[in-house]
Design a protein around this nucleic acid. Structure first.
Length: 601
RNA sequence: GGGGCGGUAGCUCAAUUGGUUAGAGUACCGGACUGUCGAUCCGGUGGUUGCGGGUUCGAGUCCCGUCCGCCUCGCCA
């Protein structure tokens, strides 16, 4: 083949007069009939205009040129010259063109299902894009994303290398452990009836690496969690995974923060200020969510004490519940912008989260109007004072048990911000959330679950209280604060971690609280407990969601945009056709059989 | 498992709310054209309306089931 001398993004006026060879895809062709044909050649680096004309080409060449179609792969030899028809300011190579004297068709393309080079026109549906991912990835936007992702991992490796971290690999075939997400399982051929699990994260291995004296560990591992996807998560994803020995929380937060600032500085030029820290409790109280978006206000205000003075049954019922509260979101200017249709929708919206509904009223010069105005008349003055009400505001009320009310209003807050157009563009608001509870109680199963994971240490000042806590004392257990932390960007959790337990007695008590007997804990986590008996340093770490970081950096809310070969909502690879059935022979070799029976017609 | 939106030409969409032969842009094919860069102009090919039932004189449109894609609750850090 005719090997390229330059890429398609490279030629400038300084190359005029040179004979060059370009390789690439035909991005577009403009055929002016016998005698003049233009074709834009595309590769990862850009576009260059090729021109075929009578004066420089024989009939045979013109005939080939005439047959060029979109996405054909060609090699073109020719001389660089100033564009006769004037420059194209849209292209980096727009001042020059290559007058082709020789053309080699390297690969004829079928009519493509869609045009990756289309400047305008709607994108095809995601199913079409995923079926033909190799074409979708040709789009400049996708090429830019691939490059961004590369640069993020490169900066990550460079940064942590500079700080003494070792990149160490951990197994993909792991032991299935309880807790956390559903595992993907892999049957063992050599050990009939036994299964590996794919890692939900390298959590235990990185802790064992600390016990092993690695001191500082980094990996960019693939993780697998067999749960239903969302716009910003799928079952197979990538973390930037770290762990450090002989550190306390602040040591971890400091280095992670400087990493994130370095990353943003290099990727966007934005020099992030020192990041604020907020406790979990404060985040829940003020924002109703453990990953607050601080780009706008609309904070939740507790008015339970005032609500108790009204005769409104909804308030009274809520306050009678365990940890019952009444909270308000004040929406400045909402009276005008939040139509009846929208606020009616809010009632439906909050019902998703278990709330009964969403009470509404508007603030006027004299008092309140519409909705629950008459019920709150007795507390009008105090309420206005408490929430800072101005005429023209809308007040949205939530009343329920603390967790339901908080969750519902927290979600509503974000929806209202969007409806009001209050979410500013171009802001990067980073935030640490700290002091998470160790445990949360699940009413349905009547037991505690680890809020982060079962290896998260209690905050140092909590350890004694924790070890002494009565497992039957729900309030006491729920009150234990962990040494966990999340990093949040614009309301999106981009990373999280904790100081880990390095004391065997503490780890044992956590397992017990989660409903595991000593024997069960030994069966499931013997390797960890053994490690903790053989000299475990205090340690802690973080995992960042690489996909989410890239999503923010490239400005998309779709995780599939930043994953080169993503899966659909049902976990399918539409291009390759995975998952798929396998031969009975394969199953037999693995000592398994499928119990699945297709539903009858 | 629940809720919602969608599936019509290769692609993006339309089709009077049940009524003639399912249209448009683009792509593709043929023709014209020597300076385009979303080329232009003329002509043409292209449809199991996701699939299977049903209602009806008549279904892209209504009903039932099912498959696929997306959003979301549950789930998941």
């Amino acid at each position: 083949m005719l090997r390229r001398t330059h890429t398609c993004g490279e030629l400038r006026e300084t190359n005029i007069g040179e004979e060059v060879t370009l390789n690439g895809w035909v991005n577009a062709y403009r055929d002016h009939g016998t005698g003049l044909v233009f074709a834009d050649l595309r590769d990862r680096y850009g576009l260059t205009q090729l021109v075929f004309d009578k004066e420089n080409a024989d009939d045979a060449l013109l005939e080939v040129a005439d047959k060029l179609r979109n996405e054909d792969v060609v090699a073109a030899v020719g001389k660089v010259r100033t564009r006769v028809g004037g420059e194209n300011p849209k292209l980096a190579t727009g001042k020059v063109e290559v007058v082709v004297t020789r053309l080699e068709l390297l690969s004829k393309a079928e009519t493509p299902p869609f045009m990756p080079g289309a400047e305008k026109g709607d994108l095809p549906g995601e199913n079409i894009r995923m079926q033909h991912r190799f074409i979708d990835l040709r789009r400049p936007r996708m090429q830019q994303i691939l490059q961004t992702r590369h640069r993020v991992t490169k900066i990550t490796r460079d940064f942590f290398d500079k700080h003494g971290f070792l990149e160490i690999e951990t197994p993909i075939l792991c032991k299935s452990t309880p807790e956390g997400a559903r595992d993907f399982l892999v049957p063992s051929r050599l050990q009939p009836g036994e299964f590996y699990a794919l890692p939900q994260s390298p959590q235990l291995f990185k802790q064992l690496l600390m016990v092993a004296g690695a001191d500082r560990y980094l990996q960019i591992p693939r993780c697998f969690r067999d749960e239903d996807p969302r716009a910003d998560r799928q079952a197979e994803f990538t973390q930037i995974d770290l762990e450090m020995s002989f550190v306390d929380r602040d040591a971890v937060l400091e280095i992670m923060e400087s990493f994130v600032r370095e990353l943003w500085s290099q990727m966007t030029g934005y020099e992030a200020p020192a990041m604020q820290r907020i406790t979990y409790q404060e985040a829940m109280d003020r924002y109703g969510i453990d990953r607050p978006d601080t780009r706008y206000g609309l904070e939740l205000v507790d008015i339970s004490d005032l609500a108790a003075k009204t005769d409104f049954k909804v308030f009274a019922d809520a306050l009678a519940k365990r940890k019952g509260v009444v909270k308000v979101i004040r929406v400045p200017g909402g009276a005008e912008k939040l139509t009846r249709k929208l606020t009616d929708g809010y009632t439906e919206f909050v019902k998703q989260f278990g709330a009964g509904g969403c009470a509404v009223t508007k603030v006027t010069e004299g008092g309140f109007e519409t909705g629950i105005a008459r019920f709150i008349e007795p507390i009008a003055a105090e309420l206005r004072e408490r929430v800072g009400a101005e005429p023209g505001d809308t007040l949205l009320f939530g009343a329920d048990g603390y967790s339901v009310c908080t969750k519902a209003l927290g979600e509503l807050r974000q929806k209202v911000a969007e409806d009001m157009g209050m979410v500013p563009e171009g802001l990067w608001n980073f935030l640490w959330v700290v002091d998470f509870p160790m445990f949360e109680y699940d009413e349905a199963s009547g037991r505690f679950y680890a809020m982060h994971h079962p290896f998260t240490a209690p905050r140092e000042d909590q350890i004694e209280a924790f070890l002494n806590a009565d497992p039957g004392d729900r309030d006491a257990i729920e009150g234990i604060v962990s040494d966990g932390y999340d990093i949040v960007l614009n309301g999106s959790e981009i990373g999280g971690g904790s100081i880990r337990i390095h004391r065997r007695d503490v780890q044992q008590k956590v397992f017990n609280l989660l409903g595991m007997s000593d024997e069960e804990a030994e069966a499931k986590f013997s390797f960890l407990l053994r490690a903790l008996r053989h000299g475990a340093p205090p340690h802690g770490g973080v995992a960042f969601g690489l996909d989410r970081l890239v999503m923010h950096l490239v400005g998309t809310d779709n995780i599939r945009d930043v994953i080169p070969f993503p899966k659909t909502h049902t976990g399918a690879d539409l291009m390759a056709g995975a998952p798929s059935g396998v031969d009975d022979a394969q199953l037999k070799e693995l000592h398994i059989a499928s119990t699945w029976k297709p539903p009858a017609e």
